[in-house]
Design a protein around this nucleic acid. Structure first.
Lengths: 171, 171
DNA sequence: TATTGTTATACTCTATAACTATA
DNA sequence: TATAGTTATAGAGTATAACAATA
């Protein structure tokens, strides 16, 4: 368990990381902004998944995913096939063109990192990777498990309403 | 120096970090979105600075900073005083209300981190903080120092054009 | 002529809410 | 009634380009 001062410093670094993210975004192909790149990369790693699963991986509302995916389908990088087990669902899959695009994205990003992190050791890169993976996992877990010490949060904070990536909409 | 496979994995974690960023953004006050929060935090840390310096810290075009800062000024969180040394410039400074707002932001973010990172050790939090700081620095350095091994980049990649955070505009 | 900052415009990312089709 | 996905709308973030004032 860490102290507040440590958390404050960590949050500052989160903010500074935005600058890194923006630089990465600037080297993306004009027809593939960073949001699209993120989706393609996730599909490349997780294989054929459903919209809802993708929303969960991205931690965004499914409406966002829907639009992103529609754009990628228009460009021919992914295809949406009906799920035989549930006619409401659609299975997402990279097309050959999609795989090629992932290759191009990988080429660009690894080149930039090679330039910028030239003086980092294997060990350091690995450490940062592991810690960021764990960070993501720690935020993920808390969508299923309630916080250890639920402190009084007077305004907007109804019970987590179970694990879902859906617009609350009406009641 | 690390291998390409390591860089690919690191980039994937960069993408996953977006989910953490979005969660942080969701707990911000309605009148202070995460972009504003980043600016306020930077001003709190760096003291009175000029627009151009702030743009550099954020790694965004000055036009972006200008709008952000205008909004914050409207809310009364910062003030822009003329720079006596250069009448074109403006000095940015947090107001007392701005400092109070920073306090509120800090309270919210540290609480969320305390919930999510409850099982992290001091050492681990410190390590992640240090590595992210170094990451930011590594990207920063390369705006002044050219890449160690300038590889052939056929399309869009004219010489760095010196360190500036400005729209290229016309020639 | 070059630099600092502002404004106008356009595009991406995101959330909320309403809707359709299926379970 | 609840869930999977879509669409419409609105707001925030960002870049490009043109502009004004000052150096």
């Amino acid at each position: 368990m860490a102290g507040n001062a440590q958390y404050e410093e960590l949050v500052r670094q989160f903010g500074a990381f935005g600058a890194v993210k923006r630089e990465l975004g600037r080297i993306m192909p004009a027809d593939c902004p960073s949001g699209s790149a993120t989706v393609l990369t996730l599909l490349d790693r997780h294989g054929d998944i459903r919209m809802s699963k993708l929303s969960e991986l991205l931690s965004v509302d499914m409406s966002v995913t829907s639009r992103q995916v529609a754009q990628l389908a228009e460009r021919g990088w992914i295809e949406r096939s009906p799920d035989p087990a549930d006619k409401r669902s659609r299975i997402l899959r990279l097309t050959p063109a999609g795989h090629a695009q992932v290759g191009e994205l990988t080429r660009r990003t690894t080149q930039l990192l090679a330039e910028r992190l030239g003086d980092w050791s294997d060990e350091e890169v690995g450490q940062l990777t592991r810690l960021m993976a764990r960070l993501r996992a720690s935020f993920d877990d808390c969508r299923t498990a309630p916080p250890p010490v639920p402190p009084p949060r007077p305004p907007a904070a109804p019970p987590p309403a179970a694990k879902t990536t859906r617009t609350p909409a009406s009641t």
